[in-house]
Simulated assay, not measured.
Amino acid sequence: MSALYTAIVTASGREGRAVSSDGLLDLTLAPPAELGGDGKGTNPEQLFAAGYAACFASALSLVARHRKIDVSHASVTAEVGLAGAAGGRFGLQVTLRVELPDELHGDQGNALVEAAHQVCPYSNATRGNIPVELVVE
């Protein structure tokens, strides 16, 4: 598979900076207060949540467009949790909350969200690696 685009970001750890090669992304990183940090910067889980939410929303729009369904008022919220695992390891867990227009609730909305989950690159990268819960709201 050939890359259509490659993002390049350099980071120095959970406390420091993350800077993209084009300079458009330049963030202060800090652990959240819940993990003993000062919370005065963003963290990797927030960045992953932003990327996953945006990507999933795009996948949803693509699937809906092919089915001639309007999802222009839909939104996706990604909740990314950092969890401890056996042996001192860490893992992620994700809940994707997809807010659809009322007329798309039920089977049609569930089918759209599931189809987007099959298309989304983040979903394909995480499938089988971390738990991802899909919630239609």
Rank of each mutant, 00 (worst) to 15 (best):
A78H: 04
A85Y: 02
S58I: 03
V71T: 10
H105L: 13
Y52D: 03
V119W: 07
A86S: 11
H66D: 14
A86V: 06
L82F: 05
E99K: 01
A78Y: 08
A57I: 05
E133S: 12
L104D: 03
H117T: 04
S61H: 15
G106Y: 04
N110H: 07
G88W: 04
P131V: 01
L104C: 12
H117R: 01
V98R: 04
R127M: 02
R67L: 05
R127H: 06
D70Q: 13
D70V: 08
A54L: 02
A78N: 06
I69S: 02
V113F: 10
V80H: 14
R127S: 08
H66R: 15
Y122H: 01
Q108C: 12
V113T: 10
H105D: 14
F90D: 01
E99C: 04
L82W: 01
G51P: 03
Y52T: 04
A111P: 09
L82T: 01
G128Y: 03
R65G: 05
A111L: 12
A74I: 07
Y52V: 05
A86L: 03
A85D: 03
G88A: 02
D70R: 15
H66T: 08
G91I: 04
V63C: 02
V132Q: 07
S123A: 08
V132F: 11
C120F: 08
A83E: 12
I130W: 10
S58K: 08
G109N: 09
A74K: 13
S72D: 13
V80A: 15
G81W: 00
V76R: 08
H66S: 14
S61C: 09
H66E: 14
G84R: 09
H117N: 12
Y122Q: 05
S61W: 08
P121G: 13
S72T: 14
V113R: 14
D107K: 12
V63D: 00
R65S: 13
V71S: 06
Y52K: 09
A74L: 11
G51M: 01
S123K: 14
F56G: 04
A111C: 09
G88T: 07
R97L: 09
C55A: 00
N129E: 06
G88K: 01
A54P: 00
A115N: 04
S72G: 10
H73Q: 14
R67A: 15
